[in-house]
């Protein structure tokens, strides 16, 4: 585990405001990064001699949205999307969690996917992971080499892991609900 090693300080001093917050109290400490800086931060973490995060384990999207208005008041969060990057290093054996907080819809217009820069240029494994996040969670990755659906058919509508997703009534003659 990486309990606040040197690269965190380096990260903060280098990127300043782009590091929105560091949570070391959680079981897996995480660093919140501004969406516009994610590629730079990742590149830094991959190349920095203290960090050497050469492996991107996983990119996950989490939808923080309570569809039930009664529960929404008690939910304790504003509706938003999180893209979580789990990094590790095969050299130093450190692990790190990066988070990017995005609006659920771009400019709050439903149907407009939020955008984020792709890190596929940093780790090539991000290619498929980002396609999956795009497919299931609906985040558009700018600069991705070929962003298209990966698990679902290309003509599928909607992004099923969104909390307000509803199964289509019918797909090519197959009953959905």
């Amino acid at each position: 585990m990486s309990e606040g090693p040197q690269f965190l300080d380096a990260l903060k001093s280098r990127f300043g405001d782009h590091i929105r917050g560091v949570n070391l109290d959680n079981i897996d400490p995480w660093v919140e990064v501004a969406p516009e800086a994610i590629v730079e931060v990742c590149r830094f973490l991959k190349t920095d001699p203290d960090a050497r995060f050469d492996m991107l384990n996983c990119i996950s999207g989490v939808d923080y949205f309570q569809p039930d208005p009664a529960k929404a008041k008690r939910a304790g969060f504003e509706p938003h999307l999180e893209v979580v990057y789990h990094l590790s290093s095969t050299i130093t054996k450190h692990t790190l969690v990066l988070k990017v907080i995005l609006p659920r819809w771009k400019d709050d217009q439903p149907g407009q996917l939020p955008e984020l820069d792709s890190v596929a240029g940093v780790w090539r494994t991000a290619d498929w992971h980002e396609r999956e996040v795009f497919d299931l969670m609906g985040v558009y990755f700018r600069g991705h080499p070929g962003l298209k659906r990966i698990l679902l058919p290309e003509d599928w509508e909607g992004h099923p892991l969104r909390k307000d997703y509803e199964l289509p009534l019918e797909y090519h003659g197959i009953r959905g609900r």
Binding site: I27, D28, N57, C58, S88
Partner: peptide
């Protein structure tokens, strides 16, 4: 489950 998030490989 306690509030929080974990990742384990």
């Amino acid at each position: 489950l306690p509030k929080g998030e974990v990742y384990l490989e």
